[in-house]
């Protein structure tokens, strides 16, 4: 099972490296959205400092959702997804592998970029640290929940818009605890409570969503 997991992750990472443009698009989308907000609300540093965590988290949510289309659609088109469904081992393991690869490709770059764009919002080092930690715990949840949405909308007309409708409401808790962690750290309450809740959500998502997405894939491929 572990070797299957390793193979799937290795394959998806190889594919991502050979299609670097896709990865960079997501990252630039994130940076551009974050940059647009001050242009909309004005450059007062105090306002921006208060909004910073929320804006960065919403941008991360959108960026992660934008890349969900890649999760299964390409494999569906060229027939490799069917081969996944026919393996003697569990499909959930394959899906877990694809979730991890999706996170490595579209989540980790955002996490690494966040402290840099966070400086645009005048976030303090404490806030940046909390932001980094919350994104590190939260973005894998986005990939895991998103996989269910991507599997359900596989091959549908207008699937890209539909997936946002299905997935964004489910992202609400991640957004609340993620942005809340930064606020709590800034206000001196400490981010531990938020981060542990995010960790609990991450465990829950990693246990339940690969299996659910596998069920959804079998339904969609029929």
């Amino acid at each position: 099972m572990l070797s299957l997991l390793r193979w799937v992750i290795a394959r998806d990472l190889t594919l991502a490296i050979r299609r670097r443009a896709d990865v960079l698009t997501t990252l630039f989308f994130f940076v551009i959205v974050v940059t647009l907000f001050p242009l909309g609300v004005g450059p007062e540093m105090d306002t921006l400092r208060r909004m910073g965590a929320g804006v960065l988290w919403v941008a991360a949510l959108l960026a992660s959702m934008l890349s969900l289309g890649r999760l299964f659609a390409a494999d569906h088109l060229d027939g490799t997804l069917e081969q996944f469904l026919l393996i003697p081992q569990s499909l959930s393991v394959v899906v877990l592998g694809k979730i991890i690869a999706h996170w490595l490709v579209s989540g980790v770059p955002l996490v690494l970029m966040a402290p840099i764009v966070g400086l645009q919002y005048g976030l303090s080092p404490t806030a940046l640290l909390a932001l980094l930690a919350s994104l590190l715990l939260g973005t894998p949840i986005l990939s895991a929940i998103g996989a269910i949405g991507a599997a359900l909308t596989l091959g549908l007309r207008g699937g890209g818009v539909l997936v946002s409708l299905l997935v964004l409401p489910l992202y609400v808790p991640v957004l609340i605890f993620g942005a809340g962690a930064v606020d709590a750290a800034v206000s001196g309450l400490g981010a531990e409570a938020h981060l542990s809740l995010l960790g609990a959500l991450l465990l829950l998502a990693l246990v339940l969503s690969p299996w659910t997405a596998a069920v959804a894939l079998r339904i969609s491929i029929e």
Binding site: L152, L166, V172, P173, F177
Partner: peptide, 18 residues
Amino acid sequence: AVLALVGVVNVPIIYFSV
């Protein structure tokens, strides 16, 4: 059905987080 069941699992979490 899958979506509705995922929703049911999530509704308490959403409510609590809100």
